[in-house]
Design a protein around this nucleic acid. Structure first.
Length: 654
DNA sequence: GTAGGGTTAG
């Protein structure tokens, strides 16, 4: 662990006369005896060099300016050399090479030159070197400036070392009151927040004598990141001057916390207040629309982005967000159009597209794109592998999935996480290899999380295995004590196995815990773009009698084609007639009937649902797609099902 | 010198 030198923790003030002497030497070594008028000229020349350096975009340019600096005898001029080092590190020249060399050629570096180097390490790492340099700077009698502390906080934030951060904090107070400096305060807030000590960041904020919009925004983002949008909103409302970045932080915060309507409201207010919009704001509202999953909003936001000049071909981040949004709004084709039209692609664009294909059951397309990606210089990351493993899983490609899982670390340098194990459990489980899946969990090198056991429980539902289900569920009850879905899933598995005693035992347990079943809800967009919502057994819709009639007609036609209600999907021990009635009242069937009434012939009917689609509704949709000759897309809480011509894209695995 | 962005499995 790196610490600040102990001897500076209390008595840190160096000998001033020595410091002054060094300072004079270091800033004016080459022209200390130059007459005043020439000195003025020299200063002008130095300023000129600074602006030239500022405009440099390539290393070769900087080298030319450096050669010029040396020719003019400014090899000891800290002012110019500081800028030189800053530009070098800005261009990602490794700080240990050229910048460090420049630094070592100066006999008496001033605090700014030291800080340029410290900052270089704070940006590139190794971060501990920043502290080592700081200690050396102090031991050589040079006092810090406010920039020095900003750089040190940056380094502490990068290594998430709050104890070191606290030592630096103490130094800002001990040495000349740096703690009251605005920038020092801001970087300190950032450091505490990055290290996960939000309250400490808040305390710094509360105690700052001067704050600016950056201080506020840092905290707003921190609250949003930990899901506390109420505190974020409260701070934001007290922010005197709200700029584009602060507004965007709010919009994005709502989107990241799954509150799309508030994100869009916030965007509206942002526009009303006359603040500009840039591509970052656009990305925020795109993710909000992805959460809504409604085509109308998807097209609206795409137009907004285009109006501001941030289309998918101009900006790779906007493009990747649009790919994700269209996938989540049910249009994987549109997502692929975006992908194809992008000038620049990166691992996000590829991964979003691969995940999109996987979500829609297009396993072959996902695998093909993965192999196309491998031909480029873009390397897959952990999310890419989640995408391809999920694709394999949904298509039953067990061997391909196992191969990828086996080689991801060795061949692609992507470490296997618990999430990847969850994908493998899902893969084996869906293929019916429940024991293999259980064995894989038992040999995991890390603790299995809820996703891993959840995948096994899901597989037990497909294959009706209440015994392994019980093992998985027991782990889940411990890991996710408030996860009502796990109780319901286990109860359904028991019900399918007609173990009614276990069903009622669980039901009592759930009642004791105060759980209430989340009501099933589906929604469908009418051709006017209005979203209609249906709950199970819901007869509140103005056209409810027409809906009921349409559903009864459809049922008759399906029965004629051989559809039989799947009574096992009802988890109550009721009469068969009662079960049939309950099944016909499932919200997605009501939504389908309304979709039929309210859309043009030939159009795809898109339904969204808050829970997982049940087996009976799945079979119903399959059959309906054939009888009515139309594609039906259902997005449940897990994935997309494309029903067409009597079959589903999920291949009956979900 | 400081603040806001895209992909994640049951």
């Amino acid at each position: 662990m790196v610490t600040l030198s102990r001897k500076f923790s209390t008595t840190a003030i160096p000998n001033p006369s020595k410091l002054l002497q060094r300072h004079l030497q270091s800033t004016t070594t080459t022209h200390i005896f130059i007459p005043f008028s020439q000195l003025q000229q020299r200063k002008l020349f130095e300023s000129h060099l600074i602006s030239v350096l500022h405009g440099c975009t390539h290393l070769t340019q900087i080298k030319q300016v450096h050669a010029h600096i040396l020719r003019k005898g400014l090899d000891q001029c800290c002012y110019v050399l500081t800028k030189l080092i800053r530009m070098l590190t800005k261009l990602d020249v490794p700080v240990h090479s050229y910048p460090r060399l420049v630094f070592h050629q100066v006999k008496y570096p001033n605090p700014f030159l030291w800080t340029a180097l410290i900052r270089g390490y704070a940006t590139q790492g190794p971060f501990s070197e920043s502290v080592v340099l700081y200690n050396r700077m102090r031991s050589e009698g040079t006092g810090p400036v406010s920039f020095t502390f900003s750089a040190l906080f940056k380094a502490c934030g990068a290594v998430l070392d709050v104890s070191l951060g606290r030592q630096v904090h103490a130094q800002t107070i001990l040495i000349g009151g740096f703690a009251s400096d605005l920038y020092v305060g801001n970087t300190m807030i950032d450091m505490y927040v990055k290290c996960g000590f939000l309250e400490c960041g808040r305390k710094v904020f509360d105690e700052m004598s001067e704050r600016d919009v950056v201080s506020w925004t840092e905290l707003i983002v921190a609250y949003a990141k930990c899901g506390d949008m109420d505190s974020a909103r409260e701070l934001f409302s007290g922010l005197p001057v709200k700029d584009m970045v602060a507004w965007t932080a709010m919009v994005t915060g709502y989107a990241q916390n799954g509150r799309p309507r508030e994100a869009l409201d916030c965007f509206q207010r942002m526009q009303d207040s006359g603040v500009k919009t840039d591509e970052v704001t656009i990305v925020g509202i795109i993710s909000a629309c992805a959460l809504l999953g409604v085509a109308k909003y998807a097209n609206w936001v795409r137009d907004v982005a285009a109006r501001y000049g941030f289309g998918p071909s101009e900006n790779v981040v906007v493009g990747s967000a649009l790919i994700d949004m269209y996938s989540k709004c049910g249009s994987v084709e549109e997502a692929y159009n975006i992908f194809e039209g992008m000038k620049e692609r990166n691992v996000f664009s590829y991964s979003s597209m691969i995940v999109g294909f996987a979500m829609h059951g297009r396993a072959q397309a996902a695998m093909q794109l993965f192999h196309e990606m491998l031909k480029t210089e873009i390397r897959p990351n952990k999310v890419t592998f989640i995408g391809v493993l999920t694709a394999c899983s949904h298509a039953g490609l067990v061997e391909q999935g196992r191969q990828l899982f086996a080689t991801m670390e060795k061949c692609f340098g992507v470490a296997r996480s618990a999430d990847h194990y969850a994908c493998m459990v899902d893969l084996l489980g869906r293929a019916g290899r429940l024991e293999d899946a259980l064995e894989l969990i038992e040999t995991m090198p890390m603790e299995p999380h809820g996703g891993v056991w959840g995948a096994l429980l899901g597989a037990c539902r497909i294959y009706g295995n209440p015994d392994i289900a019980q093992i998985a569920a027991n782990h889940l009850f411990e890991l996710e004590p408030n996860g009502i879905g796990n109780y319901i899933l286990l109860s359904n598995i028991y019900a399918s196995a007609r173990r009614w005693d276990d069903v009622s035992r669980l039901r009592i347990l759930m009642r004791e815990k105060g759980f209430k079943k989340n009501p099933g809800c589906s929604w469908v967009e009418s051709k006017e773009g209005v979203v209609h919502e249906f709950f199970a057994g819901d007869m509140n819709h103005p056209q409810s009698s027409e809906i009921k009639r349409a559903l009864a007609d459809l049922l008759d036609r399906l029965k004629a084609k051989g559809y039989q209600p799947n009574l096992g999907s009802v988890t109550y021990d009721l009469s068969d007639d009662e079960k049939k009635r309950i099944l016909m009242n499932h919200s997605e069937k009501l939504a389908l009937a309304y979709g039929l009434l309210s859309s043009d012939a030939g159009c795809t009917i898109k339904i969204m649902k808050n829970l997982r689609i049940c087996e009976d509704c799945h079979a119903f949709m399959c059959s309906a797609s054939q009888v009515i000759g139309r594609e039906i897309v259902v997005r449940d809480n897990m994935r997309f099902h494309h029903f067409s011509d009597g079959a589903c894209s999920c291949g009956n695995f979900w």
